[in-house]
Design a protein around this nucleic acid. Sequence first.
DNA 1: AAAGTCAGGATTGGATACAATCACGACATG
DNA 2: CATGTCGTGATTGTATCCAATCCTGACTTT
Lengths: 220, 220
Amino acid sequence: MNAKTPTAQEQVTARLRTEIVTGLLPPGVQVRQEALAASYGVSRVPLREALKILEGEGLVQYYPHRGFFVTELNVEDLHEIYRLRGLLEAEAIAQAVPTMHEDDVEAIESLLNAVDAAVLSGDLQQLHQANRAFHFAIFDHAGLPRLSRLLHQLWDATDVYRGLYFQEEDHRDLIAHEHRGILAALRSGDAAAVVEWQAGHRQHSEQAVSRWISGARPES
Amino acid sequence: MNAKTPTAQEQVTARLRTEIVTGLLPPGVQVRQEALAASYGVSRVPLREALKILEGEGLVQYYPHRGFFVTELNVEDLHEIYRLRGLLEAEAIAQAVPTMHEDDVEAIESLLNAVDAAVLSGDLQQLHQANRAFHFAIFDHAGLPRLSRLLHQLWDATDVYRGLYFQEEDHRDLIAHEHRGILAALRSGDAAAVVEWQAGHRQHSEQAVSRWISGARPES
DNA sequence: AAAGTCAGGATTGGATACAATCACGACATG
DNA sequence: CATGTCGTGATTGTATCCAATCCTGACTTT
């Protein structure tokens, strides 16, 4: 339809990813290929390829002849993911900070302002994107594309639940506070401090999501 | 054909992976879908899904409307991959060693014997599998499935070149020596020593592959 | 002669149609 | 009443066919 549409199935991948991430396709449900393909207005072929990609990212799981199911995490899974994030984010930050200049920091600050704006507007989807853009602007500055990719995968894996974290008012205040802490440490060029702020930030997120997972699912 | 054949396209994925890993499909070449599908005796659909999976693993790269190309690594890519491996393998080992018992070590030793046997037989495919089984028996013992998966991805990414490392005689001797070192450290329960041996092992591999990449490709 | 343009062929992207497999429920049987 | 078996419908897996895009080479134009 649009001249700029590249390989229509990337759109399917992106859309499917956001629908899983935002909880529109909740964890545990089976992905009915035909119905979904129809609702997207495409055939099953590009949808299946999208599902294969998302399987590689861990967002869905595949059982032969049974189909695709949205990944469901337990507390141990969550803990492992955050642990790995801790390891890799520290590496990324340590690599990124020393080579960061004035204008880099300012670019990141503008991203942070976008996060705040999204908080005010109340658009969760927007908030999600802006938050990720802010953090990955730092990670990406390390210039290690595979490290960034692994981090993306780990973030994707918990995005299913992260939306919940954003929904509560006081969480957002805490997030804003921690983001400013990260930025200040960034500006002073103190890599260790950035790592520290990021660790605290991560820990709060993990605790909130962990509480939610434990509480919201009595059995199974 | 066989009663036990699950979802014929997994076979395609496995076969394609080994053909890339063993160098039968060398880095840089384009994967011609129709020809390959025909040679595998399947349609293009399962082949494409296999390629999507391999793209997720980093073995091939995808350019819209151009096709899939076997990933070609430069020295920086290689260095990044080995650096990330260092980080994650150390974590896995540190987690795995303390909970390792007598029989676990013996199981790993038998895997190591399989590696030696493969070296003697000269079967590179077999050697490749056995080597991976040995190392991942240790990593997997950490009980962190996502960590194992990330490590698999990193290993996959360099498998394209690893076969070259195995092909030289004296390399194999060094490998055998280092493997025994790892096993001995494992048996004594000294996690730090295991990490150390593994680091040396990794470094030799990186140096060899790095030399090969630099030397074998004058331009481009 | 050099550079831009355009057709033809080749290759990939996607849709439809058919085959294989599985889940679920009814029924028979102990 | 519990349990095993079988058939039917639904869902996934694969092949074939058509459309969209790209690469290559020759031709035109300056």
